[in-house]
Design a protein around this nucleic acid. Structure first.
Lengths: 241, 241
DNA sequence: CGGCAAATTGACACATCTCAAAGCCTGTGG
DNA sequence: CCACAGGCTTTGAGATGTGTCAATTTGCCG
């Protein structure tokens, strides 16, 4: 199995891929690397010459403020071309960190440049993937500003449920999601203590279980209602782009 | 003066534009429209066939939750190709609203498609502009999660100061910024009352004045320090992309 | 088995929201 | 030119939400 199969799956969910598109992706020169939990795949203020794509595990974008506090601004699952941004931004404004043990594939920027010169269609699909990241970030902003912690966590779980489905990582109604409460707190913008209390409250509703790093969706519909969840922003529709 | 001069200025700040790039932009078919304060330029859940570019005034992206609350996830100034997203996303996950009286230019998606087929370089610059929007959103997420309201507002003012400078809309140390406190509250994720109190506290520091919709920067350096502001994410550097 | 990070709980402090009222500013119509 | 309406801004008081600190328990990994 190629390191690009998750990516191909994710893109194919948004637009029909030609054989040429597939071939261009599958023949991309790259190197594969593994990272332990907590390792940084890409470091803030660095100037990468390659962009990385998650092929296993869960990664996040993080920044640290000068008082030592941390904020996570995005989570990425297999198939996400996490660091495509760097191809255009050049200088990293954040780090990419492994929230679980994970695996990623690194593609030289020169190859991305070549794709952008040779295949307008694939370029638009790569562009699309960065634009979907932006849509997810806007949804996170709405959650942080206007959802209660209860609703915010619910929204996050609904989102991850669908995103992991795209990657084919949901089995029935369960999926691996071994995210710690400290990491969760840094995503939600809350204290660890409050995350713990909110999860307790949420568990009592029995819309899902979450033990041993594995989530089981018991009542997605009610959870989505509690979260005021509208999946439009995930662009889960296949259409010409 | 063409409706595209702000855009050209913004792009030229990030990479050297060829004569061909300029010509392609300047000859884009388009229509120009004006909007009163409060009008929606693009409506949530619609399926635009054109993308809009702000050429005057300030616009924002907004979403409403089912309880009636509103969150603003981005602000856009002249030169920002606000709705370039829609070219790829197809279905709007938010609205674009005029925070002040404003003017915008609408470009048909067919023309953007043509550019993406004909000019890889300009395509990358358009792509870049959506990726910078994403970087700004990540900075907003960090502000919402981990900055105090005092620091959050300071950060926002530093950001707008630099972004309006790019557009050439800062005169000396002052710029128009006629944003109401209700709108600010919906950006910051706070109540109107708290915004009022925080602004009062901030004014007492004398780092800036803000009367009659006009901001004067008195001590940008101290304000940036209070905000923990690092402009890296705005990509204000000209380099080959 | 031991050690360390994660998760949980309680008590208390503090930040922020809600509600309510008053003052201010601006544009409009008489 | 004035009166008025409506939205914005400010202020106070009290309720609620969330953070901090500290201690305990749990669970995992070496």
């Amino acid at each position: 199995m190629s390191g690009f199969s998750y990516l191909i799956r994710a893109l194919a969910g948004r637009d029909r891929l030609t054989d040429n598109d597939r071939a261009l992706i599958e023949t991309l020169p790259h190197r594969r690397r593994s990272f332990p939990k907590g390792a940084q795949l890409v470091v803030e203020h660095s100037r990468p010459t390659e962009s990385c794509l998650v092929t296993g595990g869960i990664t996040a974008r993080e920044v640290f403020l000068s008082d030592g506090s941390r904020q996570i601004s995005a989570m990425h699952v297999p198939g996400d071309f996490v660091d495509l941004h760097a191809f255009l931004l050049k200088l990293m404004d954040h780090s990419v960190v492994a929230l679980t043990e994970c695996e990623a594939v690194f593609v030289p920027h020169g190859e991305l440049l070549r794709i952008s010169e040779q295949s307008p269609h694939l370029t638009r699909l790569f562009w699309l993937s960065t634009v979907i990241d932006g849509a997810i970030q806007r949804a996170w902003i709405a959650s942080m500003g206007r959802r209660s912690p209860l609703s915010h966590i619910s929204h996050l779980l609904c989102e991850m449920y669908l995103r992991l489905q795209v990657a084919g990582l949901v089995e029935g109604d369960t999926f691996d999601f071994p995210i710690s409460q400290p990491d969760l707190a840094d995503m939600l913008g809350l204290s660890i203590v409050h995350v713990s209390r909110t999860l307790k409250e949420l568990r009592q509703l029995n819309y899902f279980t979450w033990d041993g790093g594995r989530v089981r969706m018991l009542d997605y519909k009610r959870l989505a209602k509690l979260a005021d969840f509208d999946p439009t922003y995930l662009n889960l529709i296949q259409e010409p782009r």
